[in-house]
Amino acid sequence: MKITRSKLNIIVCTVLGVTITYFLNHHMGYGAIISSGLVGVFSALLLPAPLAGATYTASFVGMSSQLIIPNVFFALTGGLIVGIIIIGTTQIYAGIGGKGGTTAAMASLITRALTGLFS
């Protein structure tokens, strides 16, 4: 797979999306729904559509509980994983509501498996 600037942008956005949502959710105590909504609104206002979609998808991973993602470093890993999955599955089921959530669920479960390996 060729690494291009647009793919790197997606990875940067997903890592930031997961980390910010996780921080708002667990460290600032806003809760999963409000954190994801805030990240989604700001990403939709500030970023172009493909990057906003990737960031909003990544924010779903940040909604995970601390049993799944125990700290910010695993949130960064989750962001990287969801970014790779988004890049690999751009054309699959485009336009189906919940596609982002399903991608995020896959990334969360992979991150949980990694958490089990390293902790």
Binding site: F60, I69, I96, G98, G101, T103, A105, S108, L109
Partner: peptide, 21 residues
Amino acid sequence: AYLGVGGRLGTIAALSCFTWI
């Protein structure tokens, strides 16, 4: 099901869309 896993709600939404489509 899958409490605490991020993306659980999106998966439910995707299943609903797939069911109707």
